[in-house]
Nucleic acid binder design. Sequence first.
DNA 1: GTGATTTCTTAACATTTGTTCAGTGTGATG
DNA 2: CATCACACTGAACAAATGTTAAGAAATCAC
Lengths: 189, 189
Amino acid sequence: MMVSEYIHQIIALLQPEKECVENAFKKMELSKGDFFIKQGKVCDQVAFVVSGKLRNFYIDDAGNEVTCFFVTADSFVSAFTSFLTNTPTHENITALEDTVLRVISKKDIEELSILIPKMQIFRRIIAENLFIIMEKRIMMLQSQSAHERYEKMLKENPEILLSVPLQYTASFLGITPQHLSRLRKELQK
Amino acid sequence: MMVSEYIHQIIALLQPEKECVENAFKKMELSKGDFFIKQGKVCDQVAFVVSGKLRNFYIDDAGNEVTCFFVTADSFVSAFTSFLTNTPTHENITALEDTVLRVISKKDIEELSILIPKMQIFRRIIAENLFIIMEKRIMMLQSQSAHERYEKMLKENPEILLSVPLQYTASFLGITPQHLSRLRKELQK
DNA sequence: GTGATTTCTTAACATTTGTTCAGTGTGATG
DNA sequence: CATCACACTGAACAAATGTTAAGAAATCAC
């Protein structure tokens, strides 16, 4: 989907506004394995995923990769906390497959928001939607067992489960790959 | 703090705008144990906590209360997901002590946002800040042990730990009261 | 103040999850 | 083809956490 189309679905845009938006987002192509952002940098851009798939992960105190999110087409991706606070990020965002992005810098978002004031509403809605996703995830991690979390993911995001290495899914669920392997076997019965 | 003051700290308000904001938020007083919202209802208001303390919890599949958040003075409280999606909430929000709120309805927020367009920016920033808090919490739940989570809370929110019943803290950390009691004893050594 | 109720602690035991390590399969590369 | 690296599985054991039940401590209602 085009980024202006996506925004238009949320806040109606006039044709010249659509063009203005399309010009503000620059095309970026990532090959499988390429990084959108690496830990230690300040993330000053946000991207709309046109096609492909990415993974957001960080390295915990024990040195393990912990997957925070998978990001698929028609959604926004960024190290948002770094982006919003201008502090170096702990997150890495990498392409799980060849991926096409439309990228906009913080500066350009601000300029676009002056040109098109209702972009403020759009930005608010995006932030609110991210919040809703986060809250769901917290409830899952806080009150469900690993087994329940896996079954829920199997039901709600089978396409991710099937397309990414098991170890990524494991850390996303907050468990070790060995334990996920065990849960899978139990579930086969 | 007055709610207009709080907002003013984030987006500068003119004196008449401050008054406009103060009028839009209605005073509400809760006694200890009173509910701001109960599960099953659609939450159509947001409150600024002037003084007091609240707890946000839901009942999980096993029938246990699970504490999602503690909310203290000078922050906003609501069943945000319900508020944003107009769906019945699973959350309960209750006063842990006598509490003074300034409450605004969804309708009034929209009207206020038309009168004072920069309220859109404020609303976005609030949503973004909630997102940042959520993300931190996810990382904690996903990659740290109960012991580490407790120590972190002890360091960062001792005032909450000391003022709420242990069982609330336990479910907030994602563990049983018995296990928290055990962790505490270990830490005393 | 007294009894009743709730909250907290403790301990034994059960379950879940992590750790270590060995093995198996698979795909890439020379 | 041989080999290497990597992802996944499996099993034995260890550590973390849950469950149950009982008693101690704190709080509440009268």
